[in-house]
Design a binder for these strands. Structure first.
Length: 381
DNA sequence: TCTGGGGTCCTAGGACCC
DNA sequence: TCTGGGGTCCTAGGACCC
């Protein structure tokens, strides 16, 4: 695909934290983190002022969902275990996650982007790609229009990257955070992209970055300096060839405006590890609830599942999964639990259990009958 | 005071079929 | 009887992303 496309990546700035600040403006400028449970919610005094929990009050096994820039300055960051963060920043304000709030802001944000370009791809709750190849104006003007529309709709800022493809647009939007605009052309790859850390590439995670580092490679430019056969030798045919292409800024993935869900799952980490025998009741109740939640999710969204699976994480953090494919698709909690129980029987339950999860896969929309269910269409003619 | 929850995609081996 | 190849489905695990 010739890269005369123009793709925008729009990324909300510190999204969860910004949503919370819209609710609690008095926290602006404070070190604040999001993590924890409803019991950490602010309490309103009779005089209308609010009292907030502090990170030092946190109990549990969660990680930080987000941290404001002020909190990050204290050395904490999203993904960090909250207990560990509490030692670094005990006085930071603590708020529980409020996904309903983030989802409502997410809708406003995406509708605002859609008003500029209808051709958008969802990437989670706080990011989208938009194909603006045929949108009026130069890239700079489009970026300003996107940011203005988002701010108008949400009162929140975002960062915009515009480039010939998704890979570069995504790298761009991160270059001038927060509230930034970055425009990049293919000929800028050498000067602007090559100096960046290899781990900035979407698709180069901790494992691949470590493997690259062990081979003396830390920047994107250093990947580009190797030939394909060397990369293939060390990273396999598929990943090696991909590394070479992305290091040169090449990416022809289209902007995908709609995709069917592949799976739906629910999982929970227990406050303390549970043993299959000693805590049988507790585990059974959690198991049932997870099955009911997945069933409800399926029914609400109108899907049937033909694959049911479970996930267990033990006290040593080792994780196992088991799944089973059924002859008929289901969405009913009881049938789901039966299938999940069959999976559970295939796991040796000696170690204590830290996490339990239930997953539905092989989804099909309700009403889109399978061949088995509508033989008349295949047999009658 | 280690390590959340919800996803997608890929790989690899074995079964099974032609 | 010493040696096939596909192709597809199923299962388990793992990397990665937000």
């Amino acid at each position: 695909m010739p890269d005369d496309r123009r793709i925008a990546h729009i990324d909300m700035d510190a999204f969860f934290a910004s949503c919370e600040l819209s609710q609690y403006p008095e926290l602006r400028g404070e070190a604040m983190v999001v993590a924890g449970r409803r019991s950490d919610a602010p309490r309103t005094n009779p005089d209308g002022t609010r009292e907030f929990s502090r990170l030092r009050d946190y109990v549990g096994r969660g990680v930080l969902t987000t941290a404001t820039y002020e909190a990050r300055a204290l050395g904490v960051h999203s993904g960090m275990p909250a207990m560990k963060a509490a030692r670094l920043a005990p006085d930071a304000i603590l708020l529980p996650v409020n996904f309903d709030l983030y989802r409502s802001y997410s809708r406003l944000f995406k509708d605002a982007v859609r008003s500029i370009s209808s051709n958008i791809e969802d990437v989670g709750i706080d990011e989208v790609y938009a194909d603006v190849s045929h949108t009026d104006g130069d890239s700079e003007a489009i970026a300003r229009k996107l940011k203005a529309a988002v701010f108008e709709a949400t009162n929140l800022t975002c960062s915009v990257g515009i480039a010939p493809n998704k890979l570069l647009a995504k790298l761009c939007s991160d270059m001038q955070k927060p509230d930034g605009i970055t425009i990049l052309k293919l000929e800028d790859v050498r000067s602007k992209i090559w100096p960046m850390a290899a781990s900035k590439i979407n698709g180069v995670g901790p494992k691949a970055a470590a493997r690259l580092a062990s081979l003396g490679i830390t920047t994107i430019g250093e990947i580009a300096s190797r030939d394909e056969s060397w990369l293939v030798e060390h990273f396999g045919r598929s990943y090696g060839a991909w590394l070479r292409r992305v290091s040169h800024g090449l990416d022809d993935r289209p902007v995908v405006t709609y995709s069917e869900p592949v799976s739906m799952s629910r999982e929970t980490t227990f406050e303390r590890d549970l043993h299959a025998v000693r805590h049988r009741q507790e585990l059974g109740a959690a198991f049932t609830r997870l099955c009911e939640q997945v069933a409800l999710d399926l029914q609400r969204k109108g899907y049937l599942a033909r694959k049911i699976g479970i996930k267990l994480r033990f006290n040593d953090f080792k994780t196992v999964t088991r799944d089973v494919t059924l002859s008929e698709p289901i969405a009913d909690a009881k049938a789901l639990r039966r299938a999940a129980t069959e999976c559970l029987k295939r796991v040796e339950l000696v170690k204590s259990i830290r996490l339990l999860g239930v997953k539905a896969g092989n989804l099909q929309p309700v009403g889109e009958a399978s061949d088995k269910e509508s033989p008349q269409f295949t047999l009658d003619f």
